[in-house]
């Protein structure tokens, strides 16, 4: 699982990490029962306070996305449904950021949605919303 943190994103780091884990689940790089990097590994890789990683993992554990196997590490829960709660949370995050950006540029929500649909159609994607099971956009 590759995690990328955005330096310019002002959201709390643990939230960013949680979103990255969810993204990996939705996109399919992480599957149920897969191991996630240890707190130590991830903290070193991202150069992030281990407590931040721990906080992210704990929250995800609390939400039922991850679970800890004693002495073996942290794993993705076997019954996690990437296409339900996770995708929705992810989409919410993307939408919120897009809306903020839009407002910053003087665009309203409706204008934004129209533009998105136009752009997606131009790029060959179906106009109606479909749950994305694989990472198959032609970006």
């Amino acid at each position: 699982m590759l995690v990328n943190l955005d330096a310019s994103d002002a959201r709390p780091l643990y939230l960013q990490i949680m979103d990255e884990v969810r993204r990996a689940l939705v996109v399919g790089t992480l599957k149920p029962e897969d191991p996630v990097p240890s707190v130590r590994e991830l903290a070193a890789e991202l150069v992030v306070n281990p407590r931040t990683v721990l906080q992210a993992y704990r929250e995800l554990e609390h939400e039922g996305v991850l679970y800890v196997r004693r002495g073996q590490g942290t794993f993705v829960a076997p019954d996690v449904q990437p296409s339900s709660g996770e995708q929705r949370a992810l989409a919410l995050g993307v939408a919120r950021r897009a809306l903020l950006e839009a407002r910053r540029n003087g665009l309203g929500a409706e204008e934004l949605v129209t533009m998105i649909r136009e752009l997606a159609a131009h790029e060959g994607e179906p106009a109606s919303p479909t749950p994305v099971a694989t990472g198959g956009t032609n970006a």
Partner: peptide, 12 residues
């Protein structure tokens, strides 16, 4: 970068 990664591991 390596030093900071070591520091993160140290903290972990």
């Amino acid at each position: 970068k390596r030093v900071l990664a070591l520091l993160a591991e140290h903290l972990a």
